[in-house]
Computed example of a mutant assay.
Amino acid sequence: MTPRDRLLGSAVVLLWGLNFVALHIGLEQFPPLFFAGLRFAVLALPVVLLVRRPRVPLRWLVLYGSGFGILQFAFLFTAMRAGMPTGLSSLVLQSSALFTVLLGALLLGERLRPVQLAGLAVAVTGMVVIGWDRAQHASLLPVLLTLAGGLGWAFGNLGSRLAAAPGPDGERPDPLALTLWMTVVPPIPMFVLSAFVEGPAAGPRALRHAFTPAGCSALIALAFTAILATLVGSSLWTTLMGRYPATTVAPLSLLVPVVGIAASWALLGERPSVFALTGGVIVIAGAFAVTSPAVSAGSDRGVVGSGGTRRIADLDPVA
C-alpha cells in the first residue's frame, strides 16, 4: 500500500472502532430494535432515490440485508442494551469471520485448509476464555447474544457473496452499490419488530426526546454510525478493495476491536479484565489464521471463496 492508502485504511479502522462508542451512546436513549431500524432508514431513503439498484437476484439481496442488517444488529444492540461491554462487543463480533468460513464449508461446499481449521480452534478457545470470564463477573447472556449477531452477519456474508457473483453478462455488481442497497432491507422489518417487542410508542417517544437539548447526543451518535461509519467508512474500504487484493486489505479489520476496546476504555471508562484481553488476543490470532491467504489462490476453490466472502464481510464490521 502507498502511504496515502495506509492512511485511508487507518481512518476506516478508526471510524469503525469509534462507532461502537457511538452505538453505546445511541442505545442509552433509543430502544435497540428501533435504533437498528433508524440507523438503516437514514441511508435507505436517499439510496432508493439516488442509487441505481444493482442487477442481482432479489433473494440474495434480501439474504444479505436480513443477515447483516436485521439479525446482526437485532442481537448486537440487544446484547449491548443488556450489559455487553462496548469494547468487548467489538471483539466478540469478529466471530462473524469464523461463522462465515464454517457456513461457506457447510452450505457452499468450500474447502477448509489446515491453517483455517487450526485458526478456528484457536479462535473458539479465545471465545471460551471470554465467556468463562464474563460468567465469573456478570451474565453470560450478552456474550451469547453477540455471538448470535456474529452468526447473523455470517449469513449476510453468504448473501453478499452470492449477490456479488458475475451475472449472465459476466459482470459483477458494483460492491458499494450492493452495500448501499442492502440498507433498504432492514428498516421496515426492524420497525415492525420494535413495535411488537418494545411497544409502538417506545421508539417515537425516544425519537422526540432526541430532538431536545438533553437528548441530542443520540442524534449525533446516529449521524456518526450512519454517515461516517457506514457511508464514509464503507466507501473508503471499497476504494481500497478495488486497488489491492482482499488479503492485503482485510486483515486491517482485525484492528477494529483494538480501537473499540481502547476507545471504550478512554471514553466510557470500561476496563477489560486480563482474562478478557487474553481471550481477545487469542480470538484475533485465530481470525487472522482463518482469513489468511493460501500460497496459490487459484488452486483452491475454498481459498477463493473465503477471500471473496471476507471481502464483503469487511465492508462494515460494526455495525
Rank of each mutant, 00 (worst) to 15 (best):
L23H: 01
L61V: 07
L27D: 06
R161N: 14
S273D: 14
P46K: 03
M182W: 12
L117F: 09
H137L: 07
L18Q: 04
V318A: 13
V128A: 15
A221M: 12
D174H: 12
N19R: 06
R161G: 09
L117P: 04
D300E: 13
L98M: 14
G149C: 08
G37D: 03
T212Q: 13
L106A: 15
L38M: 06
M190S: 03
A223K: 02
F224S: 04
G26C: 05
L63Y: 00
L8F: 08
I188A: 14
V122G: 10
R208H: 15
L255H: 02
S95H: 10
R311Q: 15
D169K: 15
V185A: 03
R243C: 11
T2L: 14
L7C: 13
T278D: 03
L61I: 05
F73A: 00
E270H: 06
L151M: 10
P166I: 06
E270V: 07
R172Q: 12
L162I: 08
P31G: 01
M127L: 15
F34H: 06
F75G: 01
E198A: 03
A319W: 08
V21E: 03
A262E: 05
R6K: 07
F35K: 03
L107K: 07
H209K: 08
L107N: 11
L268E: 06
L63P: 00
P245W: 06
G150E: 00
V115S: 11
A82C: 05
T212Y: 12
R53M: 11
W132F: 14
F35Q: 03
L61W: 04
V128K: 07
V48S: 11
L93H: 11
R311P: 09
V56Y: 01
G37P: 04
T309E: 15
T291S: 13
G242C: 07
I130S: 01
Q136T: 09
A319N: 13
T2V: 13
P175E: 00
D5N: 14
A276W: 01
R6C: 08
S264T: 09
T238K: 05
G308E: 15
T248E: 12
T183W: 14
R205N: 11
S296Q: 15
L103P: 01
L145H: 05
R6D: 07
N157F: 00
G159M: 06
T309S: 15
L231A: 13
L158C: 02
L267Q: 10
L14Q: 10
L38W: 02
A262D: 12
D133P: 00
S299T: 14
P32H: 02
M190Y: 01
M84L: 12
V303H: 14
P245K: 08
L33C: 09
A218M: 11
A262M: 11
A285N: 02
G131F: 03
H24K: 12
G109N: 09
A97E: 10
A246R: 02
P272D: 07
G233R: 01
S234I: 04
V92M: 09
D314G: 12
L255I: 01
A105C: 07
F40E: 03
L102N: 01
G83A: 01
V197S: 02
V274I: 13
T146E: 09
I227D: 12
M84P: 09
V249L: 10
D174Y: 08
Q94I: 11
S139T: 14
M1C: 08
L98E: 00
L207A: 07
L88C: 13
E270T: 05
G131C: 06
